[in-house]
Write a protein that binds this DNA or RNA. Structure first.
Lengths: 224, 224
DNA sequence: CTTGACCCCGTACCGTGGTACGGGCACTAA
DNA sequence: TTAGTGCCCGTACCACGGTACGGGGTCAAG
């Protein structure tokens, strides 16, 4: 596995050739050795590892800048290069991610409210969404469609179901909730319809239950 | 409140002056009227509303490009400019946001696992996080600090896992239990190994948690 | 009528994470 | 030896949503 040229390395690590050169320019990896002046780059195992590191750290949400700092820590045998330093950075990033999630949740809230208050047909001016956007606030109260219909069927968008077994599990979980009268689950469409008495359980509680089983779940506000 | 110059409008809407000019270039808003050639821009209420719209839509996660489309719909009295069209866009964006949230949740998971497995002190090489990053796998399970400190490894025999997704779910469920420091799950062998602090959770509780997710679970008494 | 704040315009630049181009060598298998 | 790849290098460019600059003109208060 040693002595790979840039193309092989790119394949192994799962990035583009240009990307590796880009990292080199950004000094995330050192200049690889070459057989002669102007020859091909030959990558050591250490550098390949380094690239893996970069890739994984990126997947965890670290920016290239932050990764550079982590790598510097790793290289330095300096006293400050200890585990607590690294852990602190990871924790900071965790807080970061939590914040982003919260922000997205708020956005989600706003969007869901908007969608819910839209008649879904007719001319534009019927869509309070639009008017709401022109003012500087989300429409606070207004009977939602769900309220008008007195909806009994909740639809959930569920991620992470890969097989029939997953369906069974989700069904199982849903049916164990109080207030659930029945449900159908499809891993193909990634969707569940749940017949509930809404006075007994909320849609969010339902979603949370599904999440507790390890799937992602979000409420789909508009039936059909 | 009419007849505002760009600075006033910027204040009212809550954006920078340059930003308004930028929107003008992007044709999100029309050219405002001016008293004379080369004079100051004077903004109509309609344009101010439009800016509010842009701002609000942005807060809801729409890109400028998407906002341009929404505005076009709004301008057009065309037949396609109806509420359902708008609602559909909002719903698409909602799905988008949901997806982003799910992604972030996964990132969060990974980070949390990392932080959890770090001793939090001592030299770098003690931090399994780091080594994990160099390999190409998530630092899922790996003999960790927890074991050194006197953690126990519990083995569970699990039925009903049909795919990789199921593994993930079981892992998820296990990792959410208090006292669980890490685990590895295989649907092929139908087995899970869980690193736990047994003073915090019992093997039977663990099995029960897995059952709660819809799988069968039993404790394997003989390690290895 | 002056002064100072405000606004004009075009253009360049920021950070983020890459991708694309194109002429010319380096390598390798036949 | 020769064809066909793979790689070399520098530079330019992409989307995204702005921000900054700088040398002027405009406007309203005093």
């Amino acid at each position: 596995m040693t002595d790979m040229t840039i193309g092989k390395v790119a394949d192994v690590v799962g990035v583009g050739v240009e990307t590796i050169r880009f990292y080199e320019r950004r000094k995330l990896i050192e200049q690889p050795s070459r057989p002669r002046e102007g020859g091909y780059r030959i990558y050591s195992d250490a550098t390949v590892k380094r690239l893996h590191f970069i890739r994984r750290a990126q997947e965890l949400g670290f920016s290239l800048k932050e990764i550079a700092e982590l790598l510097e820590l790793r290289d330095a045998d300096a006293p400050r290069a200890d585990a607590s330093n690294v852990q602190q950075r990871a924790m900071a990033k965790l807080r970061d991610v939590d914040q982003k999630i919260d922000q997205l949740r708020q956005i989600r809230q706003g969007l869901a409210a908007l969608v819910d208050r839209c008649p879904g047909q007719g001319p534009l001016r019927c869509c309070s969404i639009f008017e709401a956007l022109e003012q500087n606030a989300v429409p606070a109260s207004r009977p939602t469609v769900s309220e008008e219909i007195g909806m009994q069927t909740i639809r959930l968008s569920i991620g992470g179901m890969h097989c029939h077994g997953c369906e069974e599990i989700v069904r199982h979980v849903l049916e164990q909730q109080t207030g659930v009268k029945g449900c159908s689950v499809s891993h193909e469409s990634g969707e569940a319809r749940v017949a509930v008495d809404e006075s007994e359980i909320s849609d969010e509680q339902l979603a949370e239950a599904v999440r507790g089983a390890g799937y992602s779940a979000n409420i789909m506000n508009i039936p059909e």
